[in-house]
């Protein structure tokens, strides 16, 4: 599906969060000047169409004890990377997995896995599993643990005053 102008208006209205009230979609509807039924049917289409990937709780993983957060990168030949990606995606501890553009000579890596764990030693063992069990050991690689978070976007929305959206 292609979102239209009203869909985009609606998406912008809930971007910072849903109102935490019994009828949140009615509250959103009042803000954007639509009916509750229309807001619900549009949001259902947006969820089913994959424009909204997920609706619900977005956590701050750091606050929940997930502090061993590793970005692991490998230099996998372009002809092999799709097969490698499918294999690695099946490991339950891999939280995100992508192929990205290389920036040689400084950055040769094209295959990325994020592993979010609570314990660095456990994450290192999981990386070893990818290397020795999923067959990634033969590729050049680097492990970049995060040291500090400077920004994670997002704010909860709660009973904001009514406003008009043109």
């Amino acid at each position: 599906m292609i979102p239209d102008r009203i869909d985009k208006l609606l998406l912008r209205a809930i971007a910072d969060g849903l109102p935490l009230v019994s009828r949140p979609y009615a509250a959103v509807a009042a803000r954007v000047g639509l009916g509750e039924d229309e807001v619900i049917s549009r949001l259902r289409r947006l969820v089913e169409g994959g424009i909204i990937k997920r609706l619900g709780v977005i956590v701050r993983h750091h606050e929940l004890g997930y502090r061993a957060n590793a970005m692991v990168v490998w230099d996998v030949p372009d002809g092999e990377v799709t097969e490698v990606g499918r294999r690695v995606a099946a490991y339950p501890f891999v939280t995100l997995c992508y192929r990205r553009t290389r920036r040689p000579p400084d950055w040769r890596f094209n295959f990325y896995c994020m592993i979010h764990g609570k314990d660095r030693a456990v994450v290192l063992r999981q990386i070893a599993v990818l290397n020795w069990q999923a067959g990634l050991a033969r590729y050049p690689q680097a492990v970049l643990f995060s040291r500090r978070r400077f920004k994670q976007r997002g704010a909860c929305f709660d009973a904001a005053p009514a406003r008009e959206v043109a």
Partner: peptide, 13 residues
């Protein structure tokens, strides 16, 4: 939300 456990209650686009 208030305690910062959740960054947001809403959509991921």
């Amino acid at each position: 939300c208030d305690h910062g456990t959740l960054s947001r209650f809403g959509p991921l686009y």
